[in-house]
Simulated assay, not measured.
Amino acid sequence: MSDILLQVSGITKRFGGLTVVDGVSFDVRSGEVVSIIGPNGSGKTSTLNIVSGVLSADSGEVRLAGERISGRKPHQIARHGLTRTFQNGRVIGNLTVRENVLVGLDGLRKRESRLREIPGVRWASLLAETAGALVEGPKRGKEAAEDDALVTRQLERFGERLLPRRDQYAYTLSYANRRRTEIARALVADPQLLVLDEPTAGMNQTETTEVLDQLLALKERGQTILLVEHKLDLVMKLSDRIIVLDDGKIIAEGRPEEISRDPKVIEAYLGTSFAKEHNA
């Protein structure tokens, strides 16, 4: 049990009479890539939101590195070592790429925030996560140099896609580069667990392949990842284990090759053509 980083135990979430997550339990081990798949409305994003503190579960608990994080706010969970990206994209358009990535350093240092003074910032949930993360004005030279090195390290991961654009405003970026900026922001604090909600949504095949290669490189260096993604080829190539949700419940869990052959998963989500292609 010592290698289990994330423990999710019996989490349930209801909205009125609708149960969106129904007694879900799973573990993620250190260095493992675990993907959650399933039909639209199956509870995937709600599960991630409970794990990361965006939603509170009605019952059950979540532990990270043995410590209960259920009931904590997202920025507190981030400081404990869990960072994430979002399905609908959350870059701050009138900050530069560099400044957007710096927001992710809230998990390392506490700073007085001036984000509320920036025109156009309207996302209360993002502000709650990043409060105290960004300071305009004098900083000690050593800290500034350390921050810049951390940002550069993450931008270099994406090569020419982001590094030459570090001082450009995020609103000028392509959609794919905004998603890359979000991943860089989630990684800059060197999290224990990286949670990704459809990181390649809206990307074309070339862009998706590039992100897959970058995620494989993260996996190679031992980064623990919890992923929700609809692009099944990416999921099958990247994942150590796959959890399948349907109607808020886990209907299958196993290695990619096991999931691709599971009759319940084929019926509920994969379809026979995908199964035949990957089990030929």
Rank of each mutant, 00 (worst) to 15 (best):
N49M: 06
R72C: 13
G120I: 07
N279I: 10
L150V: 00
V33E: 02
L48V: 11
Q7W: 04
V51Q: 02
G248A: 07
T272H: 13
S9V: 14
L55D: 13
R72I: 12
L105H: 08
G222I: 02
A217S: 12
T209M: 09
V244C: 07
M203R: 07
P191S: 05
L187K: 05
S70W: 01
D213I: 00
R68T: 15
I50G: 03
R180M: 15
P138M: 08
E143D: 13
I11E: 08
H75W: 10
T181F: 05
H230L: 04
R180L: 15
R185I: 05
Q192A: 15
F86S: 05
I77M: 01
E277T: 15
V244I: 07
R122H: 15
L105F: 10
T200W: 02
A176F: 10
R14L: 11
P164Q: 02
N94K: 15
R255D: 09
N279P: 08
S59K: 14
G248R: 07
Q223W: 00
P191N: 04
F26M: 08
S113Y: 03
G159K: 05
V91N: 09
N40E: 10
G132A: 03
D106Q: 15
D190C: 03
E156K: 13
A189R: 09
I77S: 01
T45W: 07
R161T: 14
D262M: 08
P256F: 03
Q205M: 12
L150G: 01
W123D: 15
V34E: 02
Q154N: 03
F15I: 09
P39I: 09
T206W: 10
N177W: 07
D58W: 06
P263C: 07
V20G: 08
E198N: 06
A170I: 14
Q76V: 12
I11V: 14
T181L: 06
L194D: 02
L238V: 01
V228K: 09
I225A: 03
E67V: 14
A128P: 01
P263R: 09
I4H: 00
V8I: 13
P39M: 07
F86E: 04
Q87S: 10
K264V: 14
E253K: 12
A184G: 06
K142L: 13
Y269D: 09
R111E: 11
K249M: 10
P256M: 04
R153W: 01
D240T: 00
H230K: 06
L134N: 05
E129Q: 15
S25Q: 03
S273N: 11
S46L: 10
S260I: 12
L196A: 00
Y171Q: 13
Q76A: 13
I77E: 01
A57M: 08
D197K: 02
G23R: 10
V121F: 15
L82K: 01
R122M: 11
G93A: 13
G81C: 04
I266H: 11
P164S: 03
L82Y: 02
G159C: 09
M1T: 12
V62T: 07
N40D: 10
I250L: 11
T12V: 05
L196F: 00
S56Y: 13
E182D: 13
L187C: 06
G93S: 13
N88Q: 05
R29T: 02
D58F: 08
T19K: 11
K139G: 12
T130W: 05
N49C: 06
T83V: 01
E129L: 14
